[in-house]
Structures are given as structure tokens and as C-alpha cells.
Computed example of a mutant assay.
Amino acid sequence: MNDAVWAIVPAAGRGSRFGGDRPKQYLEVAGRTLLEHALDALLVHPRVAGAVVALSADDAYWPGEAARQGKPVLACVGGGERADSVLAALDALPADVGDSSLVLVHDAARPNLRLDDLDRLIAAAGAHADGAILAAPVRDTLKRAAADGGIASTEPRESLWRAMTPQAFRRGPLASALRAARGDGVVVTDEAMAIERLGGRPRLVEGREDNLKVTTPADHALVEFLLARGDRGASERST
């Protein structure tokens, strides 16, 4: 297997749940956009050779940069669903990225990725045929809601994890799994779900809880606090 790892960042979404006049991945935190932080956190890793960013066709904010951290950054047009954008980015990878090469998929609005988490994820994915994902055990008590807004039941939290990104898989199996889901009319909410549908069992790699995805203004404020105090994880080495 090629030792080089490429990163994919689906960034074609509008961030409608966040609101505002621009896609959330272009919000600035600590002097850079969320997308820039996410790219830097990936590209600073010595095994990561480059990145492909999947953008909406009418993206007016992408700066058109061809490199970050001294490594290539490619862009392609994504699709209406996350899986469509990831597939487009997989197709846009350089020709020397083979089907057995590891590919990382990372959220554009998840800026506080730690280098040690990324190290452990790449090692786990390289050791397991079905890949691996960063995740965190569920620590809160879970309640199932009834239709009237009351509590229907308390759910056991043992063995439950929250999926995060990056998620790491080999290029060929990931592309096949995403195409199979699309062909079956299934909208997968993350890449691991596509692999699972075909019988795969990706490994869970426990990651830091502060690897936050910015979804609401409160998330934005928390990430701004974390990054402003220098708690930047891998991205603190950025140029």
C-alpha cells in the first residue's frame, strides 16, 4: 500500500442550521476560516501528501489556493449530499493515489483536530482492512422523546459512541461503498455508514472531546475560545 495519505474535505454545504450570510466553513476564528484551520490540521501531518476540497458550483468564497503547508490543495465541484461530494473528491485525487491508499475524510467545520489523534487514526486504519474513525464514547444519559415532548424512556449508553472525523478508509472500498449506497437510494450520514452497509466493521479510535464540529453559534463561540487561547491541536503549527 502507498504510504502517502490524501485528505478529502467536503465543503459544498450551505450550513443552513447555522444561519448567516455565508457558509459556516468560511466563518473566521483566530484569524483564519474554519476551513483553513481544518486543512492545516490535516496537512501538517507528515503522512498527509495533499488535500482535495469539494466545493459547491457557485462557491464565491474559496480563495483558489493551490497549496497549504507546502502541500497541494486541489478543488472539485461537490454535490447535493455529503456522499456525492466525497465521491467527486475521490475521483479528483491524483492518478498515483491507488485503490489501496488511505484517504481521510474530514468535516470542513471541524477546526480543532489534534495531531496525536490523527496519528492514532492513521495507524489504526492502516492496520485494519475496513478502516477506522475518530469517535468519543457517549457519557451523558440518553432519553428517548415521546410525540408529546415528554420522556418515553431512558436508553442504555453502554457501547454507544459519537462519530467524529476524520474517518479513514482505503480509496477503492470507500468509493465502492458510497456508490452502492447511492444506487440503493440510501443517504449515508457518514462514510463509516457506507462501509457498514456492505458488512465492514471500521475500528473506533477514541479522540478528544474538543474536536468539535461547528453547527450552531454556541459551537462557534466555544471553538473561538479554544483556538484563541492557543488550544489548537495540530493546526497550531500552521503557517
Rank of each mutant, 00 (worst) to 15 (best):
A125N: 04
A175G: 14
D231P: 00
R179V: 04
A109F: 03
L226Q: 09
K24L: 14
V73G: 08
A127E: 14
L118H: 01
I195Y: 00
R203C: 12
A12Q: 09
L55G: 03
T215C: 07
E206A: 12
L198P: 09
E206I: 10
A152Y: 06
A127P: 03
E158R: 13
F18W: 03
A95C: 06
A4E: 13
P137E: 12
G230L: 05
P23Q: 05
R171Q: 11
V52H: 08
V48G: 05
S176L: 13
G20W: 06
S101G: 15
S16L: 12
V138E: 07
L198Q: 13
V52C: 13
P202W: 02
V187K: 09
E224D: 15
D190L: 06
E36K: 01
A125S: 06
A177R: 04
L121Y: 05
P137S: 10
I195P: 01
A54D: 11
W62I: 04
A129F: 02
V186C: 01
A7W: 02
H220C: 08
D96K: 01
L104M: 06
S56P: 12
G126V: 05
P137W: 05
V223E: 06
P173C: 08
V105T: 08
S153N: 14
K71C: 02
E209D: 12
V205M: 05
G98H: 11
V5Y: 02
E155W: 01
E65A: 14
D130Q: 06
G150I: 04
E155T: 06
V105P: 07
L178T: 01
S235C: 08
A218L: 11
A135Q: 03
D116S: 11
A41F: 10
A228E: 14
P166R: 00
G185D: 04
L113K: 04
A4C: 05
A218G: 10
L104S: 02
K213M: 14
G98I: 05
L87C: 14
A194N: 04
A7F: 00
E81W: 11
A11K: 01
E81V: 10
W6E: 03
P173L: 04
G98N: 09
G80C: 02
A30E: 12
V188C: 10
H106N: 12
K143G: 04
L226A: 05
S16D: 15
D21A: 12
G13Y: 05
D96E: 15
R32A: 15
I195C: 04
S16I: 10
R22I: 11
E191M: 15
Q167W: 06
V52R: 04
D116G: 00
L160V: 03
T215K: 14
G31Y: 07
A123E: 15
P173N: 08
